[in-house]
Amino acid sequence: MSLGTGIVLFVVGAILAFALNLQVGWIDLHLVGYILMAAGVIGIILGIVLITRRRTSVATTRQAVDPATGERVTRRTSDIDDSPL
């Protein structure tokens, strides 16, 4: 669930809970609105957590001397871990 989906759920829930004055015999639209608003808040929180998660980067530098030529060799590598939670 993305941040946008959470916002849409919250807005639709708020419309159902507060803006509509409609009575349906088989469902309580106000309760459905509150449930959608709660799901929207959870979606917004999850979206923010997933957006702000930190990426871990590891930089490694190795220096060695080539025994055949006697020259110094430097190797730099960088790894980024952006695996999902």
Rank of each mutant, 00 (worst) to 15 (best):
Ser2Asn: 12
Leu3Gly: 10
Gly4Pro: 00
Gly6Asp: 11
Ile7Val: 07
Val8Phe: 09
Leu9Phe: 13
Leu9Lys: 08
Leu9Cys: 09
Val11Gln: 11
Val12Ile: 06
Ile15Val: 14
Leu16Asp: 06
Leu16Val: 07
Ala17His: 00
Ala17Ser: 15
Ala19Val: 10
Leu20Gln: 05
Asn21Arg: 12
Leu22Lys: 02
Leu22Ile: 02
Gln23Gly: 12
Gln23Leu: 13
Gln23Thr: 10
Ile27Tyr: 00
Ile27His: 01
His30Val: 12
His30Gly: 03
His30Cys: 07
Tyr34Asn: 08
Tyr34Lys: 08
Met37Thr: 11
Ala38Leu: 15
Ala39Gly: 12
Gly40Phe: 01
Gly40Met: 02
Gly43Asn: 10
Ile45Thr: 04
Gly47Gln: 01
Ile48Leu: 14
Val49Asn: 08
Ile51His: 14
Ile51Pro: 07
Thr52Trp: 01
Thr56Gly: 11
Thr61Arg: 05
Thr61Glu: 14
Arg62Ala: 03
Ala64Leu: 15
Ala64Met: 15
Val65Met: 11
Asp66Gly: 05
Thr69Leu: 13
Thr69Phe: 09
Gly70Ser: 12
Val73Glu: 06
Thr74Trp: 09
Thr74Pro: 04
Arg76Gln: 06
Arg76His: 15
Ile80Gln: 03
Asp82Phe: 11
Ser83Lys: 10
Pro84Tyr: 08
Pro84Ser: 05
Pro84Trp: 07
